[in-house]
Design a protein around this nucleic acid. Sequence first.
DNA 1: CGGGGCCTAAACACTC
DNA 2: GGAGTGTTTAGGCCCC
Length: 431
Amino acid sequence: MMVESASETIRTTTSNQNGVSNLSSQLDGGGGREGGSNGDNNGEISPVDLLHLQQQQVCVCVCTSCSVVCACAPVHLNNEHALDDRSTAQCRIQVGHTHTHTDERLQAMMTHLHMRPSEPKPFNQPLNLASSGSLLKRESEVYPEGLPHPPTSATAPITPLRQGPSVISSSSLHSHSHPHGVGPIRRRIADKFCTPIASELAQNCEFYKNADVRPPFTYASLIRHAILEAPDRQLTLNEIYNWFTRMFAYFRRNTATWKNAVRHNLSLHKCFVRVENVKGAVWTVDEVEYQKRRPPKMTGSPTLVKNMISGLGFGSLNASYQAALAESSLTLLNSQGLVNPSSAASLNMLHGMGHDDVSSTVEQVNSNGSCSPTLSPQQYGHQVHVKEEPTEIEEDSRSMSLMATVTQNMALPSDRDDRDLDDDLPTEELE
DNA sequence: CGGGGCCTAAACACTC
DNA sequence: GGAGTGTTTAGGCCCC
């Protein structure tokens, strides 16, 4: 199947009070496989289903290429139809459209959290969260339902929420010139402090696979992770390439750039050792050298401790990112297994932070690129490495991030009331 | 402000 | 000769 045709034939259908009949008619007349619970009903939606859809105000997409009704066009497209740049752009349009429809749900969630719906900066994540609600609102106002939204750029990587202090200021949201005049600037909150890359990937691998998001890790960390993931802990260069493209949608474009960077890193860092074997030249990791390169910074660093503590209040953000995806994308068809016990992670992060990344958790993402929802307790103490490009997709990202926040917080155990939630947030971030 | 880490770009050499 | 691979250098940004 042609990728282009797949990406262009995703229809978004809103099933709110005014839209259920529309969904019903589309399902009825679709002639293809029906999703949801009406598959055995000749395409008709039962009253129960109608009520359910009304209550959930779900926004579903119908892929006319394969007649699959899906809750998340990007996920579906990437899983069923390989995404190229064009498809990625189409996914963004769908994401934006979907989140427009979920605006009301978002408002209700924020109300639940005692947040003012128009609160521009609920947390200290200006990039991902600042004015997320207002962005949604604004978008929905500017682009009424039923009207197509302007497409977002295909060259706009976004980055899921990370914990800890962000150096991304509102002023920095506007891109500056790339040093070389063509590329994006980088707002690096790099994978310092022994980033738990494995747990991050385990948590967000589906996201990274589908979203054009630059992973918040250095090339060296990613290369090391790829190698350690391999059964024999060695990979050829081409296998490393394949791992990058398999695991990250971001690395499915600009191949010359990042492949050059991969080779550069392999040669530059002593921790990567080239070995000749039957497969030819393979690359392995010298853990000793790697640890030399990245000495532990967790012990006794007041700044780091402060950062981590300040990040605790936002621990749910990262974990909740997938929950948001699940919430927004898999309401009808919960087939991707994106939901993870993130609320538990939010609590667990109070303990056991400050550990190196891959060694203990590399098994969470297997060599096939499949993801385990297993959570590691040390996943919120690191920072973001954000590569931004000046496009509107960041709004989608922030919208999703806020959705993630809300969704996750709603999933917190009931013994933590809203006041506790507020208490977790650094007061200065609520200003 | 300097050092270090990181990224991107590019040039060059080598092998198949 | 071209593609892929590996090495090296340079310039720039960001954080400490």
